[in-house]
Design a protein around this nucleic acid. Structure first.
Length: 305
RNA sequence: GGUUCCAUAGCUCAGUCGGUAGAGCAAUGGAUUGAAAAUCCAUGUGUCGUUGGUUCAAUUCCAACUGGAACCA
């Protein structure tokens, strides 16, 4: 199996910085395992690292899409795997670094995404039903998929119905998988005590403001106007933390201070969800990020073993 | 200095005509297979300011004290 290194951790813990240091020492190249850093013109709010900070280490899946394009776990899985092969063929170590748990798991494990064509007419029809009605429909078609989907989780109930409608059942697709790693992956998780992490997150949002987050949003709105995009706030890319919160601000329903506080809160909540995923879905070697030298030493040791 | 009011969860506060208490927000735990920075589920964490008194029983009534607020000097 091909050897790869994976660096995960909650938002704001300092993954990017460590990935560079490790890449330098291990002759590696970095693939971003992040759902939002793929978008161009969204740099401050996604805390993207700059060209200088990359220190010449090649990065993939950063700055590749316009913000009006959709991006999905299936896209990520396909392209990330291609990059892994290319990097290995050059004799380098692939390092996946990011905070999007689902994306990273989908690459590492044998997740299968069938080729599908969405039936837009059927999708539209679903809008006419209540959560309960959709749930009942799914119970008839694919009751097994309901084991991990709650009635109120409309997004995922609809998704399971769409999958069933396009051919195979979602539960069958999952059952056919072996849930095994496809790579010899070492997964390192960077962590901090919760209160320290939250403090860092709050500070980071303040720094984003100083760097011009609001200007970045205004710029995106301008691009959207020029491109005649109707509702910018409906774009997938604008659902990201640090972006979606500004809708209320521009509609004069929230002050700047309230918006900043909301971004901080959403970031903290997100960090907590990330921990839930990494703790329960991946086999993570956790390293407490207190001193930089110690962290690197520990990380290198884990990689060797 | 005097009078009055306040003190209950991390915060803002409700409440118990005396039987050890509950909302919102924050927070915590969990699910997660094509929106995942998304979407959804669950959970009240408390010497009811301190010390005494009355009482079978005090967070609740009484007193003193401590801290805070307002008003009068």
């Amino acid at each position: 199996m091909d050897k790869i290194l994976v660096i995960v951790g909650p938002t704001g813990v300092g993954k990017s910085q460590y990935s560079i240091e490790l890449a330098k020492r291990l002759n590696g190249e970095i693939i971003s395992g992040d759902a939002y850093q793929i978008y161009k013109a969204m740099s401050i709010g996604t805390a993207k690292i700059t060209k200088e900070e990359m220190q010449g280490i090649p990065h993939y899946l950063v700055d590749e899409l316009c913000f009006d394009h959709p991006y999905s776990v299936a896209d990520f899985q396909r392209v990330a795997r291609e990059h892994i092969q290319t990097i290995i063929s050059r004799g380098k170590l692939p390092i996946i670094c990011g905070g999007t748990g689902l994306y990273i798991k989908a690459v590492l494990y044998d997740y299968v995404f069938e080729k599908e064509e969405i039936d837009e007419v059927y999708k539209d029809q679903l809008k006419n039903y209540s959560n309960e009605e959709l749930y009942e429909q799914l119970k008839e078609i694919d009751s097994k998929s309901l084991e991990t989907i709650h009635v109120n989780n409309r997004q995922r109930v609809e998704r399971a119905l769409l999958i069933a409608h396009s051919g195979k059942l979602k539960s069958d697709i999952v059952d056919e998988q072996q849930h095994k790693l496809l790579y010899n992956a070492t997964i390192i998780g960077l962590t901090l005590p919760r209160d320290q992490l939250y403090e860092k997150i709050n500070q980071r949002v303040n720094v984003m403001m100083e760097k011009g987050l609001l200007k970045e949003i205004e710029q995106l709105i301008k691009i959207a106007n020029d491109d005649k995009i109707e509702d910018i706030w409906n774009l997938q890319a604008m659902k990201g933390i640090g972006y979606k919160e500004w809708k209320s601000y521009f509609e004069k329903e929230a002050t700047k201070e309230e918006t900043i506080a909301l971004i901080q809160k959403n970031s903290r909540n997100f960090a907590k969800r990330q921990y839930t995923w990494f703790n329960n879905q991946l086999d993570v070697n956790w390293i407490n990020v207190t001193t930089k030298e110690q962290t690197l030493k520990e990380a290198l040791e884990i990689v060797k073993n």
